[in-house]
Design a protein around this nucleic acid. Structure first.
Lengths: 89, 89
DNA sequence: ATTCTTGTTACTATTAATAGTAACAGTTAC
DNA sequence: GTAACTGTTACTATTAATAGTAACAAGAAT
């Protein structure tokens, strides 16, 4: 595993404050990249709710290719993303 | 603050295991994006150590524009990134 | 059976980040 | 003073993600 990524993850693991983590992400990612993260998260939530891909694409003004990616991730057995999303559904 | 990003941050805040967080990031980011995160982190670490920008660029095979970004972030007063990095120096 | 809806894949065009490079200003060393 | 080093900015070219779109197959509804 990449040493730098591991350190980032360790920092996140040791942080218990969402706002602090938000600022951290803001300083490490561009505004566009944050927006990308946000939309990916939302895609996975909607997919998990059973919303059809085309409806998601239309509602969020996104293309299907982006949604297929989220779909594949959710289908993985024991997907961590699925578990994460379920905490907020 | 964006609701989706907030949820992501909340998830991270509640996770105390670096490996779990790593898997989470892997499922939300592309391999290239993870690599980008890694190199940004490394840039900030080296800048914090006082390594000249051109040496960083040469050693990491990166361009200066990327490094200037990290430099600006570090100069912000109370930069969270600076604090984060210092935990690993 | 056929129509409709769905997930998936494939394709080109576009966009944002950034590589590669040059130029400039400020500092330091000589 | 000037030469060397530094941080910063600006520029074009490249790259990866993705928008927009069409096509295909599978299943459900009629």
């Amino acid at each position: 595993m990449d040493k730098n990524l591991l350190e980032i993850c360790q920092y996140l693991a040791n942080s218990n404050n969402a706002k602090t983590i938000y600022k951290f992400l803001e300083s490490l990612l561009t505004p566009k990249e944050l927006q990308t993260l946000s939309s990916r998260w939302q895609i996975v939530k909607l997919l998990d709710q059973g919303v059809p891909q085309r409806k998601i694409a239309k509602d969020l003004h996104l293309s299907l290719c982006k949604i297929t990616r989220g779909s594949k991730e959710l289908k993985k057995r024991n997907s961590i993303l699925k578990k994460a999303v379920n905490q907020f559904q």
